[in-house]
Amino acid sequence: MRLRTLLLSIALATMAPALPALAHHGWTWAVDELSELTGTVKAVYVGNPHATLDLDVDGVVWHVELAPPGPTMATGFTEETVKPGDQVTAIGNRSKDPNETRMKAVRITAGGKNYDIYPARVPQD
């Protein structure tokens, strides 16, 4: 019986792999400092699970993550706000992995207007 309990425990332990790495929800994967990216829009998506913006920055495509659709649209930013070819600036936290061209944005500036996706994280000037 003790062997069975052990077997069962091993089986249960192997099926509960809590692996926090690789997380692209939240900011755990991004650096603490804010930085700025300016490029042209390649693709825009405002929907679940979260909105994304692909920016061409000097020939390199950056994958910019915004908030879930509700909070993103609450700032006034929709899929109609920008279109491919538009010039956009994103302020946010870059990936900790220097080879990964990915950013979690806190503010998007497009057409002379600021969209504060995470207002509490936008530096006060």
Binding site: A11, T14, M15, P17, L19, L22, A23, H24, H25, P49
Partner: peptide, 19 residues
């Protein structure tokens, strides 16, 4: 079976964090 199904679950969970 006991190997493949948890692996499929794990792959699915990672998927939710990389898109």
């Amino acid at each position: 079976s006991i190997t493949l199904w948890p692996l499929a679950l794990l792959a699915g969970r990672f998927l939710g964090f990389v898109l």
